[in-house]
Amino acid sequence: MIRSRRRLSGRLAARLTAVVLLSAAAGCSGTGGAPSVPVPSPPAAEAAACRTLHKALPKTVADLGRADPEPRSELTAGWGDGEIVLRCGVPRPAGMDDPQATAVEADGVNWMVEQRDSGPRFTATYREPYVEVTMGSRFAHDVTPLAQLAAAVAKTIPSSV
């Protein structure tokens, strides 16, 4: 269960929570080039929801054009040169079992936050299948992309609560 939540929506989505701001790694660089990412292998029903999400995703996020990672799959999507990557149908992250895990809310979708040297990783909580969004370090202080993805996630990925 995730206890710590911050509400981020609309105008507030451009600001990252204090926890994320303080724990962001300094001096990290983005990935550069379209990445190769592992394609999840969820059960059939979850894969169907992921395909529906794939069709609903925006063409641009954070002013970055759609550039899906390799190998091409309806379970993955990307924007920019690997700056934002979405994977649908990922396994439940172990961090969700941590009662001290940090989460944010962006336009009605809750996301567990994990800081990495290469940039933050967010996993939608209270929804199945699990949707993971990784961002380059330039987004260490900006969760605007989550707000821009929230409508598609909320519309296509069922709440598990």
Score class of each variant (00 low, 15 high):
residue 90 V to I: 07
residue 91 P to F: 01
residue 91 P to C: 07
residue 92 R to L: 04
residue 92 R to W: 02
residue 93 P to R: 00
residue 93 P to T: 02
residue 94 A to D: 05
residue 94 A to Q: 03
residue 96 M to V: 04
residue 96 M to D: 03
residue 97 D to P: 00
residue 97 D to I: 00
residue 98 D to R: 09
residue 98 D to G: 04
residue 98 D to M: 03
residue 99 P to G: 12
residue 99 P to A: 13
residue 100 Q to F: 09
residue 100 Q to L: 14
residue 101 A to M: 07
residue 101 A to W: 00
residue 102 T to L: 14
residue 102 T to I: 13
residue 103 A to T: 12
residue 104 V to M: 12
residue 105 E to T: 15
residue 108 G to L: 12
residue 108 G to N: 13
residue 108 G to T: 15
residue 108 G to Y: 08
residue 109 V to Q: 13
residue 109 V to S: 15
residue 109 V to P: 12
residue 110 N to M: 09
residue 110 N to S: 13
residue 112 M to V: 03
residue 112 M to C: 03
residue 113 V to P: 03
residue 114 E to K: 10
residue 115 Q to S: 14
residue 115 Q to G: 12
residue 116 R to P: 00
residue 117 D to E: 05
residue 119 G to C: 06
residue 120 P to Q: 07
residue 121 R to K: 05
residue 121 R to H: 00
residue 121 R to V: 08
residue 122 F to I: 02
residue 122 F to N: 04
residue 124 A to S: 13
residue 124 A to T: 12
residue 125 T to S: 10
residue 125 T to I: 06
residue 127 R to K: 14
residue 127 R to E: 13
residue 127 R to P: 12
residue 127 R to C: 14
residue 128 E to G: 08
residue 129 P to H: 09
residue 130 Y to P: 01
residue 130 Y to E: 01
residue 131 V to I: 12
residue 132 E to L: 02
residue 132 E to N: 01
residue 132 E to M: 01
residue 134 T to V: 01
residue 134 T to Y: 00
residue 134 T to G: 03
residue 135 M to N: 06
residue 135 M to V: 06
residue 135 M to S: 07
residue 135 M to P: 04
residue 136 G to W: 01
residue 137 S to T: 07
residue 138 R to Q: 11
residue 138 R to N: 05
residue 139 F to M: 06
residue 139 F to G: 08
residue 139 F to L: 07
residue 139 F to R: 10
residue 139 F to P: 08
residue 140 A to F: 03
residue 143 V to R: 05
residue 143 V to I: 11
residue 144 T to I: 04
residue 145 P to F: 02
residue 146 L to Y: 07
residue 147 A to L: 11
residue 148 Q to P: 05
residue 148 Q to G: 05
residue 149 L to H: 09
